[in-house]
Amino acid sequence: MITPLYAQSLLREGAVMAAVAVALIGLPWFLTAIGGYSELATPIVLWGIFALGFDILIGFTGLLSFGHAAFWGLGSYAAGLMLLRVTDGFIPAVLVGTLVGAVASLLLGYLTLRRRGIYFSILTLAFAEMFYYAALSPLQQWTGGDNGLTGIPPADLCGIAMKGEAIYYVIAVTAFIGIYVARRIMRSPYGLILRAIKSNETRVASTGIDTRRYKLMAFVISGVYAGLAGSLSAVYQTYVPTDALHWTTSGQVVMMAVIGGVGTLFGPMIGAGIVLYLANVLSGVTAQWLLIQGLIFMGFVIFLPGGVVDAGRRLALLLSRRPAPTDKRAAGTVSVHPAQAE
């Protein structure tokens, strides 16, 4: 039965996803227009998928992981190896890569979620580093060691070689689906509980929720997105660098999420676009691109922790000449007994 409320939300959802589709289709053109190049769209959307899943973990569940390169990297290697040694089918390669990301995140999540807060973050960093070192040395016959996995053949999807424009559209479709799924998750009862965990974990536990399992599942969901993005990256680049598992990769997705704006799903994707665009533009001008990125990142953490999305929101509020947020707050302090208002 379609109630008016339901119809309303359907329309809204439709509008949002339509806007997403337009953005994805128009991205290559938009990039050329602002001084980039259209092929940059592919890595942007790839990292966007990575960052999207990451936001579910950091923005909604409140867990900061410094180890997600593990899932991106393992997904990359798995997909690459599939293409090199098993079949040149696009779907099996990406499927296997995503699965590997899922399993790895289940194991790593189980281990690291035994601790909370700061400990958790440290442990994610540590165990991801383990995978990096394992790929460098003990497992180098599989991973190509220091050189990475080279010479990956182009993948085949129904007779079409996955490169250039073709692969961009496949990746864009994947991103579209990924965004829809992420929004569904966050609007489900599951998403409500994840947000509650971020808001007040003690209260959630005392309200009958097994927080451990919810956190683990959020971790795995973000690992699936990371593995998926990593697999697609291997297909796109036809090469997997060892850096895919390095802490700098984990750091990149963290910076993208913060710069874009955590907790918004779209923010981190925008962050990916900004970071990659700037990297592209600035690395032609200076060798110190990473230094600048680090400073920008710190700037956001210090002054604009809500990221670009939040800055945009505030700007919009300012421009629409509504009362400043502080006034709004005071007016909004409600109480049955106004004298008691804090």
Binding site: S188, P189, L192, G208
Partner: peptide, 18 residues
């Protein structure tokens, strides 16, 4: 949140529930 916990128990993987 509490009502969901009461309805679904301590854990339910209903992330696709509409």
């Amino acid at each position: 949140i509490a009502a969901v916990a009461a309805r679904d128990g301590s854990y339910r993987a209903n992330f696709f529930q509409h």
